[in-house]
Amino acid sequence: MRALFPLLMLLLSACSNLPMAIKEAPSPDWQLSQVAVEAEQHKGEVIRWGGQVVKVENDDNGSTIHVVQFPLNSFGRPDSDGVSQGRFLIHSESFIDPYIYKAGTLITVAGTVEKKETVTIDKKSMSLPVVISSELYRWTQADYSRDPYWRSHPYYYDPFAYGPYYGPGLRPSWRYYNGLYW
């Protein structure tokens, strides 16, 4: 039995592939609305924000990702149904492929606030906070289409669904457990 415990712990630790900077919020957890007003005062502060990619720009100095912010859930995944606090920019010294990080991709970034930068969006100049990326995580369809809890397995089986525990018409549909509504 003692030999199985380390094996079990190894298997359980392999289930999570998220970097710790993405999975856990920094302390203090600065929000975009707080930093956007006075980014210069928050220079060097560690943040963890997420959202949806608008576009990626590459040049000789690195890459810039334009992101519409969305609130993060407890795992650091952006909730695109949530209320956005605005936009921000991510700077990275490495090349970011615009095909992989195409418009609409959900991402979470951990990094530090650098400054504010003025950009033009549909003929309107806006001043956006700039984040220097230390960790960048791209969420795949499988990551954000399933709930990480009991509905995460596509073939979830409820052993009580057909017993006397549910009344007539109260049996759950398999589509609900699957997280898909067909």
Rank of each mutant, 00 (worst) to 15 (best):
F88Y: 15
P164S: 13
G104E: 04
D97P: 04
A3M: 12
V113A: 00
I132W: 08
H42E: 06
Q141R: 13
Q69E: 15
A25S: 14
W150T: 02
N178I: 12
T105D: 07
K23R: 14
V54P: 01
A142E: 15
S173T: 03
F160L: 15
S134E: 14
V119D: 04
V131W: 02
S80E: 12
F70M: 04
E93G: 08
K115I: 13
S27H: 11
N73Y: 00
Y101A: 04
V119Y: 00
F75T: 14
S74F: 02
D60W: 10
W30K: 09
V53K: 13
L106T: 03
S127E: 05
L170E: 08
Q69P: 00
Q52I: 01
S173A: 06
G76R: 03
L89C: 02
S92Y: 00
C15W: 10
K55E: 15
Q41S: 14
R87T: 02
L170F: 10
S74P: 00
W150R: 12
P168S: 08
I132C: 03
N58Y: 01
V68G: 01
M20I: 12
R138E: 11
S74Y: 02
Y181A: 12
S13Y: 14
F75Y: 05
Y99W: 07
I22T: 03
L4R: 15
V130D: 06
W30E: 01
L32R: 14
T105A: 15
L32P: 04
H153W: 13
Q69V: 01
Q31V: 05
I100Q: 04
T118H: 06
W150C: 12
T120N: 07
Y177S: 10
G167I: 05
L72E: 03
G167K: 10
E93R: 14
